[in-house]
Structures are given as structure tokens and as C-alpha cells.
Amino acid sequence: MKFAVIGGTGLIGSQVVKNLNSAGHEAVPHALTTGVDVITGQGVDEAVAGADVVVNLTNSPTFDEASPAFFRTSMENLLAASAKGGVGHFVILSIVGVDQVPELDYYKAKALQEELLAAGPVPYSIVRATQFMEFIDAVMSWTADGDTVRLPATPVQPIAAKDVAAAVAEVAAGTPINGIHPIGGPEIFNLDEVGRFTLSRKGDNRTVVTDPTAGMFAVVKGDVLTDKDAHLAPTRYADWLAS
């Protein structure tokens, strides 16, 4: 099968392309650097032409109130081009619990992306993943001040990017599910515990202070984790850190 991977040069996209090509498919990466602009529409028709499957892994450049406009415009352009090009399957990567945190602009934007896809003209699949292990350092940097990192005790279920990419590639190569495929890491931690463990393993002497008001995850109320029907990835956080 032929795949057009939009956002195919990023953290997840590059691995999805590699996985699909290794499985004998033809996966072509597309991004701004290859002349495809999902906002202006430049190069979009050409990128999806002849593709059996479109995998959209583009992301908003911001996490604020501007993010919904990015996902609306990009999805409208990609879906229109996919319908015109006869694409039979459209896949996106979203977030577990994205519809449970309306306080976050970015989560609202990703929920909008899901809604646009579900209402669109192309059979689809949505892969929802928990928080990437690769983003833990960034999460800590948002609330770091000198020798202190402030983090809430929000439960998280970190998953390795390589496991996310494997799941996206597998779903993309399959039949459209016209629904959601949830995936998560094999372990659940409190975010402040993840912070302490990470700093300890890296020999970082900063102190993690539990602060229920700190950072983006402070607004997450309760558990935004996978349910019993989700697929659990194999990579454990300690093993990922060690590698």
C-alpha cells in the first residue's frame, strides 16, 4: 500500500515511515520542509495523490488558544484533498482523555480534530496515546525554578515514542476502524514521582516539590489514563531512561 505521512519528518512521523517501509509498504514523508503546507494548502493535493492511506501527524506550533484554528484548517485541507484523491483510510494521533480536560486549549483543539475527522468524508482511525516519555523533561522544565521543580501528583502513564509509532503504523496498515484505538504505557505513576525518579537516575540534584497548581497537568482532575480495553505498550520507563 502507499502511505502519505503528513508530518512525516518529526519524532513519531519519521518512525512511522520507517516502520511502514520496513513492512514492505511505500510510505512517503511530507512536511513544510518538503513543500507541503497544511495551513495554506500548498502541496497538499500532490502529497495525497495516489495514496491509499493518509497518516496526519502534524501538530500545532502552539498549545494555546491558537491551536484550534490550526487543527481546523489543516484537517479541512487534508480531508478535502483526501476525498478528491480517493484515499480510503485517514489516520490521526490523538491523546487519551482528550475529551475530559476542556480547561486545556490544546486538548480542546485535539478533540476538535477528532470531531472533524469523524464527520469527514473518508473512513478513519484515531490512535489515542498517553503522555510520551520523551516529553517528561519538557514537562519538568515548564515549572523549574533554580534548584526546584514543581509538579502536581497527577497520575500519568508514560509511553515510549517508538511504541506509539509502532501502533500508528499497525493501525494505518489495517482496516479503518471508524473509531478510537487507545494505547498507553505499561505503568502508572504520579507525575511528581516520575520527576523525582527521572532526576535521580540522571544524577540531577534538583528537588521536586509536589504542587497541585503547577504546570499544564495541574488542571487535569482525576485519572486521564487508559481503560481496560486499551493496548499496553511493552517499554517500561526505567528501561527507556537507561537506554
Results as ranks from 00 to 15, higher is better:
R72V: 09
A69M: 01
Q15D: 13
T175P: 07
S200H: 07
S82H: 04
E103Q: 15
F217W: 10
V48N: 10
V96K: 08
T210N: 02
Q42I: 13
S243M: 08
R236A: 08
S125V: 14
V208Q: 07
I177Q: 09
F189V: 05
Y124P: 09
V38Q: 04
T58L: 15
Q100A: 14
G146M: 09
T58R: 15
R128N: 08
H181F: 14
V168H: 03
L117V: 13
G85I: 07
A144L: 03
A160Q: 06
H231G: 06
G50L: 15
Q113M: 10
K84S: 01
N178W: 09
L93G: 08
G215R: 10
D45P: 10
P102H: 05
L199F: 00
Q15W: 07
V156M: 06
L232Y: 08
F189P: 02
K162S: 02
A238S: 13
S94K: 03
G185I: 08
T175Y: 02
G185F: 14
G184H: 03
R236E: 13
P102G: 11
V168W: 02
V28I: 15
R128E: 11
W142Q: 14
T34A: 12
L225E: 05
V16D: 03
D223L: 04
T40H: 07
M1Y: 15
P29Y: 14
V17N: 08
I188G: 02
G86N: 09
S243I: 03
I39G: 00
V168R: 05
K202W: 11
D211A: 12
I159W: 02
F90C: 04
V209S: 03
A119F: 02
P123D: 12
I6C: 08
T226H: 03
L241N: 11
K202V: 06
V220H: 14
I180T: 12
V171D: 01
P234F: 02
T9M: 08
V53N: 02
S125H: 03
L112T: 12
A119N: 05
A109W: 00
A238H: 12
G10V: 11
F217G: 10
A167M: 09
M1W: 10
E187K: 05
G50E: 12
L79R: 01
D227M: 09
F197V: 08
G215K: 00
I126Y: 09
S74F: 04
P212D: 12
D99S: 12
A214M: 04
N21T: 15
M140P: 02
L32A: 07
I188P: 10
V98N: 02
T198S: 11
V17Q: 09
R72H: 14
